[in-house]
């Protein structure tokens, strides 16, 4: 039982990490709250669902989901957001409007029921581990999440591009004066973040499901994680995801009455005592 809950918590945290890391870096780099981020999850999930239905190929579904949301993110950035960097109210309108459009589009195409994506064959059973039944799919989630975290870490900390992103988060003006094309970087980060969120949508399909309203639920979770963990850093996203993942899993176990509110309670506490998040963000407490 203990091991099962632990695996639940860790795998959920990994899924949350994939969701939140794109938003965190986008926020740190672009200082824009992308309210459409949850919609990427939703759209990715629906596209993955359809692809699995047609081709029975889960891997292809994840690729399709990620590609679709990458395209949407690229379109949104290049077509709309690019001109309104630094203008908060405009960004809220744009990203919220897009949220509505994507949500409605998905509703029109896929309808209103809740779907779960069937996990890939071979991963739909459970393993007997130390006396506990562990669904193998959750192990896959943990593996993918950990790999993703490692990959993001490597890019962030060990490559020149990652250093440029960190520099731009530190001091955008100075980075530009050093020849770093922050706008192209922002475009790349935004699109990649969208792709990862779409990937998370497909991966989360077998566990959380895909349903109208998932976009808002996911968005709120991701925002909470970013606030708790601190924006602009991968470590912050990871820590935040772990905290929220564990609080949610064990919280709904021991305090089911306020399960929906417990995450926010945790967030309020963190903000009160450590307003910058666990891994201090840079300059986001100024408007």
């Amino acid at each position: 039982m203990v091991l099962e809950q632990l695996v639940n918590a860790v795998s959920y945290s990994m899924l949350l990490f994939l969701l939140a890391v794109g938003l965190s870096v986008t926020l740190g780099l672009l200082r824009v709250v992308n309210l459409t981020h949850g919609s990427y999850y939703l759209l990715g999930g629906y596209v993955g669902l359809s692809v699995v239905r047609w081709t029975h190929n889960f891997l292809l579904a994840t690729g399709a989901g990620a590609a679709t949301t990458a395209a949407l993110a690229a379109l949104m950035f290049w077509g709309l957001l690019r001109r309104f960097l630094g203008q908060e109210s405009a960004q809220v309108l744009i990203t919220f409007g897009s949220l509505f459009i994507v949500a409605d589009g998905c509703l029109a195409i896929w309808g209103g029921q809740t779907y779960t994506i069937p996990p890939p064959p071979g991963l739909s059973s459970s393993l007997l581990l130390a006396g506990a039944h562990i669904p193998t799919y959750l192990l896959l989630l943990i593996a993918v999440g950990a790999t993703g975290a490692a990959a993001v870490y490597w890019v962030f900390e060990r490559t020149r591009v990652g250093a440029m992103v960190r520099a731009a988060v530190d001091d955008r003006e100075l980075a530009e004066a050093c020849g770093v094309d922050v706008r192209a970087l922002s475009f790349g980060v935004f699109t990649l973040g969208g792709a990862i969120a779409g990937l998370a949508g497909v991966l989360g399909g077998p566990v959380i499901g895909v349903y109208p309203g998932a976009d808002l639920a996911v968005l709120l979770l991701a925002l909470v994680i970013v606030v708790v963990g601190g924006a602009g850093s991968m470590l912050g996203a990871l820590l935040g995801s772990l905290v929220i993942g564990f609080v949610t899993t064990y919280g709904s176990l021991y305090f089911p009455e306020i399960a929906s509110g417990i995450v926010y309670l945790a967030m309020v506490l963190v903000i009160l005592f450590r307003p910058q998040g666990l891994v201090p963000a840079r300059g986001l407490d100024q408007t």
Partner: peptide
């Protein structure tokens, strides 16, 4: 707090109240 953190904190308070109302 200000900015994003203000948004999230106010949201958090409202969400806690909402959860209370629901449950």
């Amino acid at each position: 707090v200000r900015g994003l953190y203000f948004m999230m904190l106010t949201l958090g308070i409202a969400q806690v109240l909402w959860a209370l109302a629901e449950n």
